[in-house]
Amino acid sequence: MTIQTTKEANATVLTIAGRMDAVTAPEYEKALNERIAAGESAFVIDFQGLEYISSAGLRALLATAKLLKTKNGQIRLANVLGTVREVFDISGFGSIFQIQDSVAAALADLG
């Protein structure tokens, strides 16, 4: 898994590529937790390059979203596609995250 970070005017965009599994999910959690600890509170997670996600990946997403919520932060997901989208659907995660079709739409939604 690779995580690329871009600072936009109103949010930090994390572009995730590769596999989010039991081995790599902690890297995502660590990266986001560090930014939350540093005071950042608006995030777009871009899953365009994500090939695979398991429950460990969903667990990491949920844990960071909960932490962010306690700090009144916001998170949007973008480009949740194909098989990754199916995993979101069968787990019910598609309904607890706000998902947009593109990073631009997610940034606009954050306002």
Partner: peptide, 23 residues
Amino acid sequence: PDTTSDIMDRQVGGLGVHFIRTL
């Protein structure tokens, strides 16, 4: 697992076996 509650009430456990059954 519970797959319907909102983000703060959602529990992280049980999803693995749900995937084993579903997939």
